[in-house]
Amino acid sequence: MAKLRPEWIALCTAAIGLAYSAGYVVTEPRPIAAAPASHSVQVQSDNRASASAGGESASEAEEHQGRTTQKKQNRTTATTIRKKSGYKDGTYSGQGMNRIGAVAVSVTIKQGKIASVQITDCTTSYPEIKIDQLPAQVVSRQNANVDNVSGATESTSDFVTAVAQALTQAKA
């Protein structure tokens, strides 16, 4: 690697150090057992199996998943805390279909803010048609001999429907 000018090393070290340590001390006390997020993964798979929380039967849910592009979403866990953003704390899932296949996300709201949007399913079983712009993760999967791919920042348009579904639940 080329030898980076020392003032830039100093500036970056200070910037990351300040931003990182402040997170611990002031705004983000470290969660001890961060249960909600891992829970959400579990809940997601539970939804797929039973889909009872949303008041729709499992067979109906399966049918939605299998045949249409409009998927159902379940509010999985929710407390009654509502903050300025209008989101209630909890974990919510959303699903959708798009050009790369089926996608599912799990959105966790903490203190009224989006704490994470995890992709819980991204089945890239795209059909034979030529797709212009595949996400890097798909490209890296196709190029089995690389660990990952660096490129211009891709947008998340493939996931918008799924995320919107989950956020609608969080606002309800």
Partner: peptide
């Protein structure tokens, strides 16, 4: 060491090199 592809700017499902 991690092997990282640099995406081809025109052919999006290809890489320009690693």
């Amino acid at each position: 060491p991690w092997k990282i592809g640099i995406r081809h700017p025109v052919h999006h499902d290809e890489i320009a090199g690693t």
